[in-house]
Design a protein around this nucleic acid. Structure first.
Length: 749
DNA sequence: CAGGCAG
């Protein structure tokens, strides 16, 4: 890696700026141009890379992570495995502006892989001849960025050769095309390992198997992967248009201020009894949990707890255990019907807090510094959900918190978590402020998306800083070394996404054994297929008996599995009286002709306020963004096919108002806070009512008016009305065609 | 399907 690009040397610090190093704004970008002085060094990169790998290997070996040793060996075969790769390369020459191979080589970290896959014409690739659509799709990352210079972007027309939106699915059928089809077989991220015979492998360390496996394994299996979506991620930092990755521009990070989100309707959900896990839970507990609860005698008796114990959610008399590491001494594990009661509460007896008038954060038990930090964040006095949960969390109890989107959940768990850590630290005689090298994190906050993790950190970091604690973000899509560096220097609170966190655990670079407080934001989602297992594995690495906090606007029985394994005596705390009726969101359903979809979206998005468009697939999201952009409506996209740099940047563009339309997949559905989004368009209707609630929760915040327009084809009306019923939302269904006055009215809102 | 490590 070029010397001038040595961010690690700097101060990766707690708030690692993923883009700082990309030089997007710096002089660095220039060196990537061919002919430019800096270009040559890059072409030498391959050699450097080798060196880097050697170092890395050594480092890994030293750190006991020698498991990835074969890493370097795999690479050589890489090219051989992917013959088609060579075909694409020729173009690289033409793409002077592209960092080309050099860039990649100099980059020790992951995320660069896409660079390899040259984008653009794949005509030479016979096998994929029929994949016209793909070839047309230039790299999202490379092309869309420079809106100004749009000229070089393939005209939309070109893209239109692509079948329809959903075309991507077609590809799945192609046997020779491993990419999507194969990917879809894989239920979830965590399962990917199956290919490596993961099942036989115990939890971690599976990495080894994967690495040692002859490359043929998955390399061959997914040869086209990189080629397929090569350009999306070619990380091209330059791009001066990007506003400095300024953190928290325009309150972007402050989730707490969000406003109402319809609350989940749990009444019509199938009875809890339907859940399979239910019946076998006792057995499950007995066999799987023992290790965790050993410290409590190995048995699982949990004293039944009385509902009456918990009728007052707001102020529990303080109990002995405060802080992490507390042991539920009097609570023995052991499955009892009471567990059901707890979960049942998710349905019914949730504890509600209403009166928060006159209550201050200080009253809730938070210290002066933290209160001051909260004030600085714009949180002068506690919101209901905060008043309801903070005291309980401070008490050291496990908590299930349900607060509407934007009700202030982040602060609800962040503030007391920091308070507890601080006290714990003070008690241990250590003083805050001084960073102790290598100290292990004592709190972990997990979020389902990187953007959300980043956002949470923007709220937690200042609070933690106020009492001398450090936070660090651990998420994928960016080089890991800065994150690792931060961990090595010592961190108190880790905030991140499951993938990278588990990855670093496997590498032996992240030790969660001291984590006494674990928070799952969007907890119900974290229990969805694909997330649940990784989350469970991660939680098992945290300290036994550690406190667990589960938060979500749509917290439901889906979290039962986690609750049963990790929580002790939890109760649901939520806020009363805020339902859809009190919402400031206007819901509309437009029944349209599928072929009119693009035109209608265009007409709806042609407006002044900030507009968030949700699409079901990445491809469609990208396509729509391009469509709008080409129609003269500046739009950017946000989805998983973009590299993290673009993701963060594009989101920032909406936040800052630089662009007023963001077309996203459900990455942006949960938690993301952007001020003043007054229109949410669901280009594709959501499948789940919870998704509807979360998506629509991106607007109508802070008491402002918001509108949610959902486009559905005629045949989906029934499904849609059922979904709305579950969400307890009422909306008119209106047959709509392009040009209708209604569209103009909605756009004007 | 989308999301989440890397390569």
């Amino acid at each position: 890696m070029p010397n001038n690009k040595k961010p690690a040397g700097g101060r990766p610090a707690k708030n690692f700026d993923p883009y700082a190093r990309s030089g997007k704004s710096g002089p660095k970008s220039g060196s990537r141009s061919p002919g430019h002085r800096g270009y040559k060094p890059e072409s030498e990169a391959p050699a450097k890379k080798a060196r880097w790998n050697a170092d890395e290997r050594a480092e890994r070996a030293a750190s006991g992570g020698g498991d990835r040793r074969s890493y370097g060996n795999d690479r050589p075969s890489y090219g051989n495995d992917r013959p088609s790769y060579g075909n694409d390369r020729p173009q690289r020459g033409e793409r002077s502006e592209r960092p080309a191979y050099g860039q990649r080589s100099e980059r020790p970290a992951y995320g660069d892989r896409n660079d390899r896959a040259p984008r653009g014409d794949r005509t030479e690739r016979p096998a994929y001849g029929d994949r016209a659509p793909r070839g047309d799709r230039p790299s999202y990352n490379n092309d869309r960025p420079q809106r100004g210079e749009r000229s070089e972007r393939p005209a939309y027309g070109q893209r239109s050769e692509r079948p329809a939106y959903g075309d991507r699915n077609d590809r799945g059928a192609r046997s020779d095309r491993p990419a999507y089809g194969q990917r879809s077989e894989r239920p979830a991220y965590g399962d990917r390992n199956d290919r490596g015979a993961r099942s036989e492998r115990p939890a971690y360390g599976d990495r080894n198997a994967r690495t040692e496996r002859p490359a043929s394994g998955d390399r061959n299996a997914r040869p086209s992967y990189g080629n397929d979506r090569p350009s999306y991620n070619s990380d091209r930092p330059q791009r001066g248009d990007r506003p400095a990755y300024g953190k928290r521009e325009s309150g972007y990070g402050d989730r707490p201020r969000e406003e109402r989100a319809p609350r989940a309707d749990r009444s019509d959900r199938p009875a809890y009894n339907d859940r399979a896990q239910r019946s076998d839970r006792p057995a499950y507990n007995a066999s799987e949990r023992p290790p965790r609860r050993d410290d409590r005698g190995g048995s699982y008796e949990r004293p039944g707890f009385k509902a009456s114990d918990r009728s007052d959610s707001k102020f529990y008399p303080s109990r002995e255990h405060k802080g992490a590491g507390r042991v539920h001494g009097d609570q023995k594990g052991h499955f009892t019907p009471e567990d059901d009661v707890v979960l049942e509460r998710l349905e019914a007896q949730a504890i509600e807090a209403t009166d928060v008038d006159g209550v201050s954060f200080g009253d809730l038990g938070l210290g002066g510094n933290i209160v001051a930090a909260l004030t600085a964040l714009g949180a002068a006095s506690p919101f209901p959900i905060q008043a309801a949960t903070i005291p309980v969390v401070l008490e050291g109890r496990d908590v299930l918190g349900r607060g509407k989107t934007g009700s202030g959940k982040t602060i609800a768990f962040a503030a007391p978590t920091v308070e507890l850590l601080m006290k714990q630290w003070a008690q241990s005689g250590k003083s805050g402020g001084k960073r102790q090298i290598g100290r292990k994190p004592r709190a972990l906050i997990l979020a389902p998306t990187r953007e959300l993790a980043l956002q949470i950190d923007r709220t937690v970091q200042p609070i933690a800083q106020s009492v001398g604690l450090f936070t660090t973000q651990i998420y994928g899509g960016v080089p890991q070394y800065k994150q690792v560096g931060a961990l090595q220097r010592g961190v108190d609170i880790v905030i991140g996404t499951p993938g990278r966190i588990e990855d670093l655990i496997e590498q032996g670079r992240l030790d969660l054994s001291e984590v006494a407080i674990t928070v799952l934001d969007e907890a119900d989602h974290m229990c969805d297929l694909g997330f649940l297992e990784p989350v469970q594995r991660i939680l098992r690495h945290t300290k036994d008996g550690g406190q667990k906090l589960l938060f979500s606007a749509t917290l439901d029985k889906g979290v039962a599995t986690l609750v049963n394994e990790f929580l002790v005596n939890p109760a649901v705390h939520e806020v009363a009286g805020e339902d859809q009726a009190s919402s400031t969101i206007d819901h509309r359903v437009l029944v349209i002709e599928h072929r009119d979809k693009a035109a209608i979206i265009e007409q709806l998005a042609d407006r002044n306020g900030k507009t968030l468009v949700f699409a079901r697939t990445r491809a469609f999201a990208e396509q729509l963004a391009d469509l709008l952009d080409d129609a003269g409506i500046p739009a950017v996209s946000l989805h998983g096919d973009l590299n993290q740099g673009r993701r963060t940047r594009n989101l920032a563009q909406l936040t800052s108002g630089r662009v007023s339309v963001l077309v996203a997949t459900d990455v942006a559905a949960r938690g993301i806070h952007v001020d003043d989004i007054d229109l949410v368009i669901q280009a594709d209707a959501p499948d789940e009512y919870k998704t509807y609630l979360h998506r629509s929760g991106r607007t109508g915040r802070a008491g402002k008016q918001g509108t949610v327009v959902t486009l559905i084809p005629r045949q989906r009306q029934r499904r849609m009305s059922e979904l709305l019923e579950r969400a307890e939302i009422s909306a008119d269904f209106v047959d709509t065609r392009p040009g209708d006055e209604l569209l103009r009215e909605l756009a004007a809102l």
